[in-house]
Computed example of a mutant assay.
Amino acid sequence: MWVFNKMLASIGIGNAKVDTKLEKSQYTLGETVSGIIDVQGGTVEQKIDEIYLTLHTNYEVENDDHTYQKTATINRYLITQPFVIGPNETKEIPFSFQLPFETPLTYGKTKIWIKTGMDIKNAIDPTDQDYIRVVANPLIDSVLHAVKELGFRLREVDCEEAPFRFRTYAPYFQEFEFVPVSGAFRGHLKELEFVFFVKNDQALEVLVELDRKSRGLAALFGDSEKNVRLSLTSHDIPNMKHRINDFLIRYI
């Protein structure tokens, strides 16, 4: 019977199972993700080579006028070294890791999930998958609020394949597209696009693309778009609206 059960486990029947239980489902960018991995032994004793977590997101890729979704692995975390689990034995394995700053925020079609993998020799490897919601840290949040207060509306957020010059950061980047609906910039800008490159909790680099309503020679030669960079720190948060306003005025 033992040999028969072992054979069944090798094809996934009566195999050990894994279930990840997160402390919560929403996290701020850069926050510590923690939880418990429940391992339930199967019908026979099995050696677990390792348990690992991988953090994933999806992004859009354009090819020959077609758009499709692709999955990126943001990071991989080794949780355990090899161990043996007996028949019907249960183990609770705690874990924690910091949510990487290159993780996109949960907007639109962009999803973020944690996949649990358990490597078992000579058996089908069990997996588990849990979606989480990632929200802006205080620095990005202050930028988004400031832009709104300046009369812009967030029109669209896309996570797209990154140009080659950004590939060392991640294979994707997340673009926030705003349109002016009121305030001083309405009539001067068609749209405003931000890409956030988070250095740490205290520092942020913003790639800004301004699409201006050009007139005269600028309109004739198509000189309506401007790409500039803006460096921000947590010290800018109390005066973020004025900081963004003064920055934009220089380019309209």
Rank of each mutant, 00 (worst) to 15 (best):
F4W: 11
N5M: 12
K6L: 12
K6F: 14
K6Q: 15
A9Q: 00
I11K: 10
N15R: 05
V18C: 10
D19V: 09
E23P: 02
K24Q: 09
S25I: 10
Y27A: 09
T28M: 14
L29M: 05
G30C: 12
V33D: 12
V33C: 07
S34M: 02
S34C: 02
G42E: 08
Q46M: 13
K47P: 04
K47W: 04
I48P: 08
D49H: 11
E50I: 10
Y52A: 13
L55S: 11
T57N: 11
V61M: 01
D64L: 03
H66V: 15
K70A: 07
K70Y: 13
A72S: 14
N75P: 01
Y77W: 13
L78F: 12
L78C: 06
T80V: 06
N88E: 14
T90P: 01
I93G: 08
S96D: 13
F97D: 11
P100N: 04
F101K: 02
P104Q: 02
Y107D: 11
K111H: 13
K111C: 02
I112H: 04
W113I: 00
I114Q: 11
I114D: 10
K115I: 08
D119N: 07
I120H: 10
I120Y: 08
K121A: 13
A123Y: 06
A123W: 07
A123M: 05
A123Q: 05
I124W: 11
T127E: 15
Y131P: 10
R133M: 15
V134K: 07
D141K: 03
D141V: 00
S142Q: 01
V143I: 01
V143Q: 00
L144I: 09
L144E: 13
L144Q: 13
H145P: 04
H145R: 15
L150A: 02
G151I: 03
G151H: 02
F152R: 01
F152A: 01
R153T: 15
R153Q: 14
E156Y: 08
V157N: 06
C159W: 00
E160W: 03
E161R: 08
E161H: 12
F164P: 08
R165F: 12
F166N: 02
Y169I: 09
A170G: 10
Y172T: 02
F176P: 00
E177D: 12
E177K: 15
G183M: 02
G183N: 05
G183Q: 09
G187I: 09
L189V: 03
K190E: 15
E193K: 02
E193D: 07
F194Q: 02
V198L: 02
N200P: 03
A203M: 12
L207K: 08
V208W: 00
L210H: 03
G216S: 15
G216R: 14
A219P: 05
L220N: 12
D223S: 13
S224I: 12
S224M: 09
T233F: 05
H235L: 12
P238I: 01
M240V: 06
K241C: 02
R243F: 05
I244V: 06
N245C: 09
N245M: 13
N245A: 14
I249V: 15
R250T: 08
